[in-house]
């Protein structure tokens, strides 16, 4: 006997009109879903791989003489590789959250992943930027040393200015927005999770 004061919620609940299941529609979505997922994964990877390929090409084509040039190239590639690895791992984690957990556990996994994403957007981006900046400066040294002092300082000046502009202006603005989004999401998930305590 329900203690719901004679309102038969179960009966009302089941009277909800239900959209008829359509198997073909579902299968169409399955294949579309697979395609978009793949595209997402490839875009970032292709872009970063192309960068690395270009750098390697320059190495083998220009035959740098200075050790600083080679270290510079290694640092840049390292930056790209670290970023790629973590990015792919995170994407994999996100897609493969075990859906067969209790809601409580599931919410905790979601929170954890969002926190990792936060880490990625701050600490990892910093590392990426630093490696890239140091790498480029070292890389340029060999070529700059062959220029006049004026041309060399101009080259370094423009490059450093561009990096500083990215680092101090574009980067903080972009991350701030993303961070706000992620933080509000974490907050919301935590709030929902607390309903279960």
């Amino acid at each position: 006997m329900d203690n719901d004061n004679n309102i038969d919620f179960k009966d009302l609940w089941k009277k909800q009109s239900v959209s008829p299941p359509d198997m073909t529609d579902l299968l169409a979505r399955v294949s579309k879903f697979k395609k978009t997922n793949l595209r997402c994964l490839w875009l970032t990877n292709i872009f970063l791989f192309a960068t690395s390929a270009l750098i390697i090409f320059v190495w083998s084509y220009c035959q740098p003489q200075f050790i600083s040039t080679k270290i510079g190239i290694v640092l840049m590639i390292l930056g790209v590789l670290i970023y790629l690895t973590v990015y792919n791992k995170l994407l994999g984690n996100y897609k493969n959250i075990d859906a067969n957990q209790t809601n409580h556990e599931y919410l905790q996994s979601l929170i954890l992943i969002k926190k990792k994403q936060n880490f990625m957007q701050t600490k990892l981006m910093n590392l990426y930027f630093a490696l890239l900046a140091v790498g480029i400066c070292l890389y340029m040294f060999e070529y700059a040393s062959r220029m006049t002092v004026f041309a060399a300082s101009l080259t370094y000046g423009i490059t450093l200015f561009w990096m500083a502009f990215n680092w101090f202006y574009i980067h903080p603005r972009k991350t701030k927005k993303q961070q706000e989004k992620i933080n509000s999401l974490i907050e919301k998930f935590e709030e929902v999770n607390n309903q279960l305590v």
């Binding site: 859906a99 209790t102 809601n103 599931y106 919410l107 979601l110 509000s184 999401l185 929902v192």
Partner: peptide, 15 residues
């Protein structure tokens, strides 16, 4: 479980 977890994930899209 899968269905309810998926509903919870909907919160992200809502945002």
């Amino acid at each position: 479980r899968i269905a309810s977890n998926n509903c919870l994930r909907q919160i992200e899209k809502e945002k």
